[in-house]
Amino acid sequence: MLLEQLAGNLFQGLVLGAVYGMATMGLSLIFGVLRIVNVGHGAFIMVGAFVTLWLFTALGISPLVAVPVAFVVGLGLGFIFYYTAIKKLIKAPELASLLATFSIGILLEEVIKLIFGSEFRGYNWALPKIDLGVTVLPLSKLYACIGSIIIALILYLWFNKTRAGTAMRSVVEDTEGAKVCGVNVDRVYANSFAIGIGLTLASGVLLTMFIPVGINPYMGGSYTLKAFVIAVLGGLTSPYGAFFGGLVFGLIENGSYTLFALIPGVEPFALTRFLSFLMLLVILLIRPTGILKGK
């Protein structure tokens, strides 16, 4: 009985983990290329969620269509914030970019609150559920999971097969080396930031499929924290590392939830959050370069 429940939850964890992973790729891409930690990461996820909500409730557009729309909105926001704020901060001390991305996050939250208000909202995408034996999975979650995997694959191919992707990889490996090869490093910075934000908004769309009534201007905070744990798990600079980090995180979160629920008098959800921070601390202590990366 318990084993069955655990298996079911682990499966759900894997599905959610793929989306978590995808939701961290943007953070890792931006850190890998620009060496900037986007503390406002979760706010961009939130904007993606609101894009989905608005498209669905106001225009009746499917959340699946919202994925590319959110990506494009994210690209736009990314370029705007890059040229107005980030560009000047790349060579500045870390504190400057931390404060800048932190305030961009607050700015986004307040703008969204002005437009949509601060209550929790949701949308009702009525899709059937599928029975997998160990667990019942709404089709929307399955779509989110498959969507994440497809986006991760596209990013992988783009990184390895295209000229622009290779240029980005070279900057991640060694900025000075990329310069002497003739890579326009400034442009790579701008593109990576915009693509990173685009991916993050797109992940916000997919995450709404796991939170039926959880869309709120301040929902981003917990995703920022989770993304940090996942990014560290995956080695910080590698978007695919982040993807696998997400899978591991989803498994641990859901697996531990089942186990914590066995302890009487304990609120299991709060404990999973505690566990994720414990993980972050332990990983940083033992292997600050990440568990999944070889180096």
Binding site: K179, V180, V183
Partner: peptide, 24 residues
Amino acid sequence: LPTHIKVDKGLTLVPEGKHLFGGM
């Protein structure tokens, strides 16, 4: 001129300390 234009014009640098792409 930015570095990538200089490289395009045929002027390049081999920087000190092996700035190669270790993961490639």
